[in-house]
Design a protein around this nucleic acid. Structure first.
Lengths: 205, 205
DNA sequence: CATGTGACCAATATGTATTATGGTCACCAT
DNA sequence: ATGGTGACCATAATACATATTGGTCACATG
């Protein structure tokens, strides 16, 4: 997995500390095995051999720990998507891959790491920083692809970039956002291709 | 409100019967005031002055009553959407109006008839006939607009019609389906215009 | 045959007493 | 300062006994 980044809002005490990492490791293990709700802060404390109170020297709440794990998880998805995009060299294909990778990665999280998925769903519902930041990074990635496509002449240039980004983001959202994805399983097979097709037609110069 | 249609699957006994209508009226009243869950079958029975058992001569379950009310409710939305579409005479504008009307009508249901909205959400979750039929009718309306647009030359004709219908339906779905709409409130202002724009660009010949 | 019901049952919902949990704090040790 | 904890509290989760509810059926009436 990608390097565990620990800086963040809602973190306390020494930013770079062995114990902080231990907490993150233990939390990742416990949350993904037993789920966020079923894991108590005491469980995590026990797992790393310290008292519960000590945990709170590093995180200001249980949710803050959840956010960290969730952030790692979303960063993981993001990097898969980026990797998929990088495999293509022309913007239209990049867009197709992006769509496909988003759906694939999100589905994988759902089916293979249900517990973590549930955290991501909470993050989306409750608008955690991690979720907002993830959305924003995906949006940026989309914007980069569109911008490149405009430069290469693959995409039209009349529509304001912001509008295009927004519209396509809205099209992708049901498959990006865990809350929406849950209700879109019936379409995950066809949606990436169909919607990529539609979007690319809308972008043709 | 549009005429209360009563024929359906999951209806029992005499199809056209005064008491059946009384039940529907009472259910509409109770469900929308107190909600589906909080209303008991006995409440409905009391309201129309019969015994609970008698209700079951007309409906095979409480859910069947819910489906009826929900179906009326969705038909109501559909007719608003159709009315909006009919106001425009050219297919592109029809499409814009359709999108706008769907969002407006669904939001109105949510904010002004929360209890009925919750039934519609259940209908979507549990795949009631009423919800499936509604989706199908909206899809058909969309298809008709697209077909007309192809004839008038407003829309491109290369992409297979089914694909176009499907893709645009997928774009609209987050605002059609009560379950998804709940998670899209942040975008209901801009989405209709932005997405209509994108869709129309994708349809340009 | 059509209209109508009270009594009844399994399953679900509800209220409540009890426990477990998230979170803090004063305090100890190095 | 840094590293670390047990005792404590308000609130949230749990468990369980009790009451409701959805649904059926045999039967009554005209």
């Amino acid at each position: 997995m990608s390097k565990t980044v620990t800086n963040s809002v809602s973190a306390r005490g020494p930013a770079d500390h062995e114990v902080r990492d231990q907490i993150v490791v233990a939390a990742t293990e416990h949350f993904s095995r037993y789920g966020y709700e079923k894991t108590t802060v005491s469980d995590l404390a026990k797992a790393i051999g310290f008292s519960k109170a000590y945990i709170y020297k590093f995180f200001e709440s249980k949710q803050a720990i959840g956010e960290m794990i969730c952030a790692n998880c979303l960063r993981q998805i993001e990097s898969e998507v980026r990797a998929a995009v990088d495999e293509a060299d022309r913007p239209p294909e990049k867009l197709r891959r992006m769509f496909k990778a988003i759906v694939a990665a999100s589905l994988r999280l759902f089916f293979q790491d249900r517990k973590l998925y549930e955290i991501a769903a909470s993050a989306a519902t409750e608008r955690w920083q991690a979720a907002l930041a993830y959305e924003e990074r995906i949006r940026k990635l989309l914007q980069d692809i569109l911008q490149e496509g405009r430069q290469t002449g693959d995409f039209e240039r009349k529509t304001p970039l912001d509008e295009t980004v927004m519209a396509i983001y809205l099209v992708m959202r049901p498959y990006l956002n865990p809350l929406l994805l849950q209700h879109s399983f019936d379409y995950t097979d066809e949606a990436p291709a169909q919607l990529s097709g539609l979007v690319l037609r809308s972008l043709s110069p």
